[in-house]
Amino acid sequence: MLPEFLTWWTRQMADLAAPLLKRLPNNAPDAMLLTPGVGGTLGVSVRHKGQIGILPGLPAAADPDQLRDMIARRRRREPVMIRLTRNPLVRDVWLPAAVEAGLDRFLTYEMDQLTPFKAADVFFAHRVLGVDRRKAAIHVEITLVPKVWVHALLDRLERAGIVPAALEVPAGLNVPAGGRTTDVMAPKGGMRCIPLRHADPTRRTRQRLAWRTAVAASGSLALATLAEPLVRQSMALGRVEAQVAELRPRVHEAEMLRQRIAAGLAGSGRIAAARQQAGQPLAILADLTDSLPDDTWLTSLSLRRTRLVLEGHSTAATRLIAALASGKRLHNPSFAAPVLRAETGGEVFTIQAEVTP
């Protein structure tokens, strides 16, 4: 629905603008115009901003290099066009309105049905002269120039490395109000342009496909360029994860070993702490041996944690308190029971003391 509305709106705007466009000055494109003359001569003129300036012509005897140099000296950057003085062939046809969007392609396919020529044998242009909405048809004017008319000239220019853009021919039928031209570079003022190269539908399809392929390739390249750092980072992360997975058993083994070592250290620490709390029996015996005099012997020794209880005989038990207090590991020695006189003449004692780890 929307395309039909846009087409109708465009036609209405063209109908309204047609009278105004007729009042505009000549807006033909700038170009170098080559006009075939008698005996192979070429007339040269330059159109700039609608004004045509006549230049010296080119002789028929000029070879390709001379022809190229002569045109290069006279030409700026405008395209080269061939201006014909003979009238083109013109054909009016009515066509279904449905072909208007692809009219150039339709005429290329149906040229031999609409005219006595094949599309490959002519240069052609077309313009829509009117629209019959009731019949859903368009009135089309086809302007034809057989290629044999300009074949020799085009071959001569091709040898000189010159590629004309279009043919300028005298206008055919007058365009009524509301007529629309679809030619490339169609000038006003009694002349029309016929492009020398119509886009071949197959070639156009291939070009469109090539363009889309190029755009897709460019987009893919851009995406690849943007994604390359992410891909590299992902690959590096994958390698790191693989290395981590490979080292995980070793790490687990080392962790278990570390836990065992920590448990062993904790156990040895607890043992050492218990030993320190309970005292060291051999060290205590050595200290007692050094502290007690020779006339003293023990009948009982009890060590419970840090409490040491000694029982024995001595000739003078009272001096044992001072002797034990002078030791390194025994503190606060005292009698735990009264000293008794033995039948043999000695004294029986019970002494308690605190053991320092």
Rank of each mutant, 00 (worst) to 15 (best):
Leu129Ser: 07
Ala152Ile: 00
Leu230Gly: 06
Thr225Phe: 08
Arg74Glu: 08
Val145Ile: 05
Ala119Trp: 02
Ile52Ala: 00
Asp65Ile: 09
Asp104Ser: 04
Leu157Lys: 10
Pro333Gln: 04
Asp287Asn: 05
Arg105Trp: 04
Thr202Asp: 15
Arg76Leu: 08
Thr225Arg: 04
Phe335Met: 01
Ala336Val: 00
Arg232Ser: 03
Met191Tyr: 06
Thr115Asn: 08
Ala266Trp: 02
Met111Trp: 04
Ala125Asp: 06
Ala18Pro: 02
Arg270His: 05
Pro64Val: 03
Pro176His: 09
Ala17Ile: 03
Pro25Asp: 02
Asn26Met: 06
Leu34Met: 02
Asp183Gly: 07
Leu42Val: 03
Ala60Leu: 01
Gln277Cys: 01
Val169Thr: 10
Leu282Pro: 01
Ala177Val: 09
Met70Asn: 15
Ala336Asn: 01
Ile138Glu: 12
Leu55Glu: 05
Asp155Asn: 13
Asp290Glu: 11
Ala286Val: 01
Gly179Val: 13
Gly267Tyr: 08
Glu78Gly: 11
Ala217Cys: 09
Trp9His: 07
Trp8Tyr: 11
Leu103Ala: 00
Gly50Asp: 01
Thr299Gln: 09
Lys328Val: 02
Ala98Asp: 15
Glu354Lys: 14
Glu100Phe: 08
Thr115Gln: 10
Ile82Lys: 06
Ala266Phe: 00
Arg212Trp: 13
Leu95Trp: 02
Trp211Cys: 15
Leu221Pro: 03
Thr85Tyr: 03
Ala136Trp: 05
Val231Phe: 06
Ala316Leu: 02
Gln12Asp: 08
Ala224Pro: 04
Gln243Ser: 14
Leu285Thr: 06
Phe117His: 13
Val44Cys: 02
Val93Ile: 15
Leu42Gln: 05
Pro201Val: 15
Val122Ser: 03
Ala136Met: 12
Pro249Phe: 07
Leu16Glu: 12
Thr356Val: 15
Ala337Gln: 07
Thr10Trp: 11
Ala217Gly: 09
Ala119Gln: 07
Pro229Leu: 06
Arg86His: 04
Ala165Val: 07
Leu154Asp: 00
Ile52Cys: 00
Pro170Val: 02
Phe349Leu: 11
Val148Pro: 08
Thr213Asp: 10
Ala199Met: 12
Ala14Glu: 11
Trp297His: 10
Glu347Gly: 03
Pro3Val: 05
Gly172Lys: 11
Thr225Cys: 10
Gly190Glu: 04
Ala227Leu: 04
Arg307Glu: 15
Val251Arg: 14
His313Ile: 01
Ala136Arg: 12
Asn26Arg: 08
Asp15Cys: 13
Pro116Gly: 03
Phe349Cys: 06
Asn174Ser: 11
Phe123Pro: 05
Leu24Thr: 00
Asp65Ala: 13
Val231Asp: 02
Ala254Cys: 09
